[in-house]
Design a protein around this nucleic acid. Sequence first.
DNA 1: CTGAAAGCGCTTACAG
DNA 2: CTGAAAGCGCTTACAG
Lengths: 357, 357
Amino acid sequence: MKNHASEMSAVVERPMGERTRVTINDIARIANVSKKTVSRVINNSPLVRDNTRNHVEAVIKQHGFVPDPQARALAFRRSFLICLAYDNPSPQYVVNMQLGILDTLDGSDYQLVLQPVDRNDPDYQGRIQRFVERHRPGGLIMPPSVSEDEYVAEMLQKLGCDYIRIASLDIDEPARMVRTRDAEGAAQAARHLAGLGHERIAHIHGPRSFRSAHERMEGFRRGLAEFDLALPEAMMREAGYTFDTGVQAADNLLAGARRPTAIFAGNDEMAIGVYAAARKAGMQVPEDLSIVGFDDTPMAARMWPQLTTVRLPIREMGREAARSLLRKITGSPLQMSSCFTPDIVVRQSTARPLMSD
Amino acid sequence: MKNHASEMSAVVERPMGERTRVTINDIARIANVSKKTVSRVINNSPLVRDNTRNHVEAVIKQHGFVPDPQARALAFRRSFLICLAYDNPSPQYVVNMQLGILDTLDGSDYQLVLQPVDRNDPDYQGRIQRFVERHRPGGLIMPPSVSEDEYVAEMLQKLGCDYIRIASLDIDEPARMVRTRDAEGAAQAARHLAGLGHERIAHIHGPRSFRSAHERMEGFRRGLAEFDLALPEAMMREAGYTFDTGVQAADNLLAGARRPTAIFAGNDEMAIGVYAAARKAGMQVPEDLSIVGFDDTPMAARMWPQLTTVRLPIREMGREAARSLLRKITGSPLQMSSCFTPDIVVRQSTARPLMSD
DNA sequence: CTGAAAGCGCTTACAG
DNA sequence: CTGAAAGCGCTTACAG
C-alpha cells in the first residue's frame, strides 16, 4: 500500500519504524515564510494575506502536514480532548450518545474520552475536577444526571473549561444547553393512555436525584389532567432507572387490591421490568396491563409485545451537543440553544382496558 | 471544598480561573535537585538513590504535583491515550468492554479514546493508521472483528505501536493476545441441547468475516458430534450478528418442512431475533423451540422466557486487555497470555423437545 | 500583514 | 547516581 523503496529507506533511517514526520518548520522552510505564519494559517487567523494563505495551504496539502496535537496542546495549555462525563445507567443511551458525539468530532482535531462517574461516590466531583485540571480538555459534555449538578457546572466555569449540559429544563445559558422537552413527551404518554380509556394509571419514576424524573412526572400529571384524571400517590413508585428496580416497583404496584390498568415507566429499562412483573402476576400485556416506556432504546422494538414508548433522538442530541461545544471552543458567534421534543411511538404494549370493575 | 484563602489569591493572580500549577521546576527547586532527577523519580528510573527518591517523592506528594500529560507526550513522542478500535455491533459488548478497560486505566496516566470503525468502509484501515500516526497512542485494544485483521496488526507493528488483540484463536504472540475459547463455549451449547434430546438442531452463525463465527460453528459441530449428531448445511444460516438479520435467518429456518426443534445463535442479539421469528411462526419457546444464545448480555435475562446463553466475561476481558497493554507499554517482564473460557448459563429458553415425528 | 525570540513542561543524549 | 544543555513541535507576546 506504500512505496516500497521509500519505506525501506525510512526503516533504515529510523529502525523503530518511526517515519520522519513533517513539522511546522519544514512547511515554513518550503513555503519560505516564518513558522508563525504557518501557525496563523493552521489556526485560521485573519491576519494573513490571501496570497500567503493559499500558498502555505498548498504546501501543507502537498506534504500532508498535520500539526502535532500534543505540541499544540502544550503550547495552548489546552488539550484536544472532549470528555463525556456520564452516569446514565442505560448502555443504549450511552452508546448512542457516544456515536452522536463521534459523528461530529470525526474530522475535527478532537478526540472523545470517557469519564463514567458514580454520583453516589462522595469523590465524584473531585474526579471530574482532577481530570479537568490535569488534562485541560477542550470541553465536557454532560448528559443527565451529571448535567444537573450545579456544583460541577460552577467548578468548570471557575476552571475556565467549556461544557455543554444536556438536560430537561433550562438550567444554564442557552449556548451551554441542549434542551429536551421531557415533560411534553410524558404528556403525550398520558394523552395516549387516557385516550384509550384508562383511568387507573400508575407511574414509575426515576430517582429524585434526576431532574428528568421530575419533569416526566409533572408532564405526565399535566397530560392526565387534560382528561380530568389525577395521579394519586398510591399510583406512584420511585425506582432507579434500571430493570431490577423497575421489576420491584411494578411488583409492588400490582400487589395492591386496585391494580392499575396501565403503567407509564420513566424509561425503557424500567418498562421492561414491568413486563416481567406483569408475567409474574399472571397478567397479559396489553390485555390486562398497558405499558409505556421512555427513550425508545433498541430493546423496545425487540420486546414482545413491542413496547410503546416516548422517543428521544439520543444520537442526534449527541451530535448537536458536540457541535455546540465546538462552537463554544472556537468562539463562533452564532450560539443558539437547541431543543429536542420527544415523540410517542405507539407499538403493541398499549390497548383499551378490559371492561371490569 | 478547598482552602478559601489560597483559592482567592489564585483568582487574583490568574483572572481566567487558571490556578498556578506546580511544575517539575518547582519540585526540583524545592527538593533541591535537578529537574532530571525529578523526572527519574516520576518515571521510576532505578538510577536514583533511595534517599533522594524518598525526599523527592515527599515533596511531590506535599505539593500535589502531577506531571503534565501533554508535555510528557510531546517529549516522549507518544501520547497517554489508549485507543479502543472496535466494530462490534452489540452495544452491550461495547459498553462492558469500555467499562473493563476503564477499570484498569483508572488511576493510571492513560485515557481511553474511542475509534469505532466500519470494516465495510474501504478506508477503515487508513483511519486507524492516521489516528496512530497523528496521536501516537500508548497502544490499541482491538476486540473482534478488528482484532482479526492481519493487515492492521502488521501496520501497528511497523508504526511501533503496541496493541492487544482479543480473539477466539491464537493469531499473535501470547503477550499480545487475550484469548477466548469460543469453540469450547459453543461445544457446551451443543452438549446441552443434545443432552436434552434434541436431534433437529440448527445454527445461525455470524458473518464469515468474523473468525468467532467460524470458531463457534466448529465448536458447536464438535459438541454435536460427541452425541453422533451432524450439522447439515440445511440447518445452518449466516446472519450479521444483529437482531434483524437474526429474525430473517430464523424465519427462513422455520419456513422449511422439517423445522428444527432447537436453534443455537452465534450471539444474543440474533437469539433474540429467533424469539420474534418463533412467535411469528406460532411456536412456543421452549415447548416448540429451544433457543441458545452467546454472550450473556443483560438482555438475555430480561427476555421471556429468559435466554439460555453462553457467557463470556466481557468486562473482565476488557480489564485484562488493558492490564496486558500497560504491561507491554512499561516493558514489564512478566507477559503471559490470558485466556477466557466461556460457560453456559442455563435459563428458561431450552427444554426437552416435544415428542413428534 | 509578517517574523524573531521566548516559552509551554517535560525528556533525551551526553557528560561527569 | 546526578545534572546542564538541547530539544520535542507548537503558540504567545512583542515588535515592526
